[in-house]
Design a protein around this nucleic acid. Structure first.
Lengths: 102, 102
DNA sequence: TTTCTTTAGTTTGTAATACAAACTAGTTTG
DNA sequence: CAAACTAGTTTGTATTACAAACTAAAGAAA
């Protein structure tokens, strides 16, 4: 029984929660501020983690304005969506394997 | 919807896999070398991670000999078992929340 | 206008930590 | 005896998560 490995990019708590948040939206989108608020993260940390996810092409970041204020929209890419699904499947498998009791 | 947080000690890939390995044994025990082999980790990393888990009292480490060779046995404590169950429940909850589609 | 405050983020510095290389202690083999 | 192997531990390094400090622009106050 070789235990499967988990995507390192996704398996960081902050990033996992970011992706979870995006995936839970039917639109697969969230603004920077919504994420910050829902996940209770500092702007700095959120900004850094988004950069990591963006480099992996798991999310896309679109910058624009709402009125006169900057408005950053984060969206899950299809690549990110797939990777996240894989990650969850891996976890499911692991959890299932660990619960032999009905 | 506040996303739950995950136990930091458990949520490290190496440690998660160690705990998964222990939990999957009905005895909740494994020798150092079994772990090293099953998880495909270096001795150094395994040793370090076990120390972390031991400090948190999630596992207990018993040292003895098999013949003339040192034999280290690692066992999941009840505290560790509970913490691990909690962790899995948290994940389950998260995953469930994320899959609104039937 | 000029100055202060707030908003919406980014950059930079640091503290934590995962990991492996090097080491230790003892055993078996030649 | 020395060399090689076993079963780990300690150490140093390289990542990296995170927050403090910063930037840039807008609005409010004086």
């Amino acid at each position: 029984m070789k235990l499967p490995d988990l995507d390192k990019i996704i398996h960081e708590r902050a990033r996992l929660r970011i992706l979870a948040c995006l995936a839970s939206q039917t639109s697969h989108r969230c603004s920077f501020l919504e994420l910050k608020d829902k996940l209770d993260m500092t702007s700095g940390n959120l900004s850094s983690q988004l950069s990591v996810l963006e480099s992996s092409e798991y999310i896309a970041i679109a910058k624009g304005f709402r009125g006169k204020k900057p408005y950053t929209e984060v969206s899950l890419t299809s690549k990110g969506s797939e990777a996240f699904d894989d990650y969850l499947d891996t976890l499911d498998t692991m959890i299932a394997a660990l619960k032999p009791r009905t």
